[in-house]
Amino acid sequence: MLFKIKSLSKKFGKTYVLKNINLEIENDEKIVIIGPSGSGKSTFLRCLSTLEETTSGEIFFQDIKLNSKNTKKIQGKIGMVFQNFQLFDNLTVLENITLAPVLNKIMSKEEAYKQARIYLKQIHLDKKENEYPNDLSGGQKQRVAIIRTLMMNPEVILFDEPTSALDPEMINEVLALIMEVSKKNITMIVVTHELNFAYDFATRVLFMDKGRIVEDGDKEQIFHHPKTDRLQQFLDNIK
């Protein structure tokens, strides 16, 4: 089992953003989380990536309890792709991709450069390796960010609304890359509003509302046979 989440709650100030979440996630699952804004999807991902501390409850990653003491043990194993890319503006594309694996001694500089160039060629950005993030389009930035995460050989990649900040015509190139990555033996959890993509991609879909996981099932069930009125209403609203 990859993640085991027990009674996870998170509050900001006095407001509970996540309420008593219990969930198990197996290796190689491709999960999509859908739900209205403010339902706690992003916060949930941020708890899994240890960017947020939990208020109560526990998260185990491969039987390691996630807390500030164990951050070294999970170093780089839980990758994350952000809505706003978060490429490092002071570094070139190639440096962005190779910085972490080289500094963390996962690869030598030569190996990292070699691997990075293979990836860049795959996403047709091999000619941009010496350019800075500000010279790239949003879609290109996000694809570089995904490659940067892949370079760490993570067990799981969390995608926090990876296409929300993109122009419509750039969304597909990013989604296509995520589909491509999904062929690898990596667990992926994607928060997205792109329902067509979700349908093609997911092996499991979670619907969140008001800090709870309201429905959890395969895509057929979630998209075609919702059990709750709330999910039906949500699907009707965004269609």
Binding site: N84, L87, T149
Partner: peptide
């Protein structure tokens, strides 16, 4: 602060994050 978060998820510690980013 997303820059620090990106570093954290890439397994970079404080000093490496400070020095390189």
């Amino acid at each position: 602060k997303g820059q620090r978060e990106a570093c954290k998820t890439l397994g970079l510690n404080y000093l490496k994050t400070m020095k390189h980013v």
